[in-house]
Write a protein that binds this DNA or RNA. Structure first.
Lengths: 185, 185
DNA sequence: TGCCATGTAGACAGACCTGTCTACATTATG
DNA sequence: CATAATGTAGACAGGTCTGTCTACATGGCA
């Protein structure tokens, strides 16, 4: 009957699900408290303000998403051809609601500037994960940056158009960027 | 002393500036009313609910932004090389706060589904504006779709990283997409 | 035994939000 | 002149939000 998880973890889990699904601003503290089955005072002992919870949520999301992404890339072959199938897996998930970081920047960057830094750091790691599956070359880092940017575009596109359209266009950009003859230096 | 613009236009102008700068959800009706110098009852006669105002705002923004974009492309030469300089102009604007439509999808799609359709229509017209400056070819429409997606990625990137980084990466994608040898059909 | 961290339940304050309502002024038009 | 549309000023209701507070329970450890 004792709770399976300590209070802090239950709060963080509940906050993750609600913040990601409904948006940070649209989710009240009271809903997080109800969903985690914790008392209000307990909540405020662990997270003195909602902003603290938001930052903890982004940190948790960062670790969780990146672990999933690295695993998905590996499962699909661990090379450049794995990128689109891995993303397809995500976009097809019925719980897909876009990128938590991009969503948060739009919602919160004005009032919580740390979100910008967290997002920049997150996207840098995404680009690194992409670079790791590209063929070694002098242009690999820049190719990864281009793919990371296109990936963000595709994630957004999938939120107001079909996932298939987003993936198809992403695929074209991936091929164009990788096929491009070495124009560089 | 009579107002330069009819009440409805003043409301829409004020809503545009506030919604775009601070976000739709973060901006209360009272602030729009104060900024437009209109009485509350007058406001509610023109826009029975905030949702009506939001949709009118997006419609107005759509026309205004697209007119600016077409003009900027023309001023920079009206060909494919005009794309990055035109976007540069926008990102360098101190009032730049990302794409109003992408921001709204994140904030509102859950409670106001029309936002999704409006955004899809807006982006389709952006792609058409891009296609108009690309060299005629069998692949022009698909190239424009790819560039539109990359453009969205760049707009986002500029919100948490430097505009220069976003533009540089966008430029690489533009060149890769346009340089790509005809991969057939 | 005594102390303290950690927990529960829930009332409450103060702010802000949307939308309604009363009461009155101005202007154009039939 | 009379009527209707359009405007102003601002109180108010009912809801939601964050964060504080009181009062009490439990379990580990010195």
């Amino acid at each position: 009957m004792s709770p399976a998880l300590p209070a802090r973890d239950r709060i963080l889990l509940a906050a993750h699900d609600l913040f990601y699904r409904d948006g940070v601003r649209a989710t009240g503290i009271d809903r997080v408290i109800a969903a985690s089955g914790v008392a209000k005072l307990t909540f405020y002992r662990h997270f003195p303000s909602k902003n603290d919870l938001i930052l903890a949520y982004l940190d948790y999301r960062h670790q969780r998403w990146l672990a999933w992404f690295a695993d998905a890339l590996a499962r699909h072959g661990g090379n450049a051809a794995a990128i689109v199938p891995a993303i397809h897996e995500w976009l097809a998930d019925p719980d897909f609601r876009g990128c938590a970081f991009l969503n948060s920047v739009g919602e919160l960057a004005g009032v919580l500037p740390e979100v910008r830094d967290i997002t920049r750091a997150h996207k840098a790691e995404v680009a690194a994960a992409l670079a790791a599956v590209l063929p070694a070359s002098r242009r690999r880092t820049r190719q990864a940056a281009a793919l990371a940017l296109a990936l963000d575009g595709a994630i957004l596109r999938a939120q107001f158009d079909t996932a298939d359209a987003a993936l198809h266009t992403l695929d074209e950009i991936v091929e164009a960027v990788l096929a491009r003859p070495g124009a560089g230096r």
